Computed example of a mutant assay.
Amino acid sequence: MIDKIDPIPPENITRVDATSRPLLPLYSFVVQAGFASPAESHIERRLNLQDLCVNDTDCTYFVKAVGESMIGDYIFPSSILVVDSSVAVESGSVIVAWVNGECCVKRFVRQGKIIMLESSNEKYLPIYVHIGRDQFRVLGVVTFIVSKPPRYVRPC
Rank of each mutant, 00 (worst) to 15 (best):
Asp3Glu: 13
Lys4Leu: 09
Asp6Trp: 11
Asp6Lys: 09
Asp6Leu: 10
Ile8Gly: 02
Ile8Gln: 07
Pro9Gly: 05
Pro9His: 15
Pro10Glu: 15
Asn12Met: 03
Asn12Cys: 12
Asn12Phe: 09
Ala18His: 02
Ser28Thr: 09
Phe29Pro: 00
Val31Ile: 15
Val31His: 07
Gln32Ile: 10
Ala33Ile: 01
Ala33Leu: 09
Ala36Gly: 07
Ser41Asn: 14
His42Asp: 05
Ile43Gly: 08
Glu44Trp: 10
Arg45Ser: 11
Arg46Asp: 13
Arg46Gln: 15
Arg46Met: 14
Arg46Tyr: 15
Leu49Phe: 12
Thr57Val: 13
Tyr61Thr: 00
Phe62Leu: 13
Phe62Arg: 00
Val63Pro: 02
Val63Cys: 06
Ser69Pro: 09
Ser69Val: 08
Met70Cys: 03
Met70Tyr: 04
Ile71Tyr: 00
Gly72Asp: 10
Ile75Met: 09
Pro77Thr: 07
Ser78Ala: 13
Ser79Cys: 03
Val83His: 01
Ala88Lys: 15
Ala88Val: 12
Val89Phe: 04
Val89Asp: 05
Glu90Ser: 11
Gly92Ala: 06
Gly92Asp: 04
Ser93Gly: 08
Ser93Pro: 10
Ser93Cys: 10
Val96Met: 13
Val96Cys: 10
Val99Asn: 00
Asn100Asp: 12
Asn100Ile: 03
Glu102Val: 10
Glu102Arg: 12
Cys103Met: 15
Cys104His: 03
Lys106Asn: 00
Lys106Leu: 06
Arg110Ala: 11
Gly112Ser: 01
Ile115Thr: 04
Met116Leu: 11
Leu117His: 04
Leu117Tyr: 04
Glu118Asp: 04
Glu118Pro: 00
Ser119Gly: 05
Ser120His: 07
Asn121Asp: 13
Tyr124Cys: 06
Leu125Pro: 08
Tyr128Trp: 01
Val142Ile: 13
Thr143Trp: 00
Ile145Cys: 13
Ile145Asn: 06
Ser147Phe: 01
Ser147His: 12
Val153Leu: 13
Arg154Met: 15
Cys156Asp: 11
Cys156Ala: 10
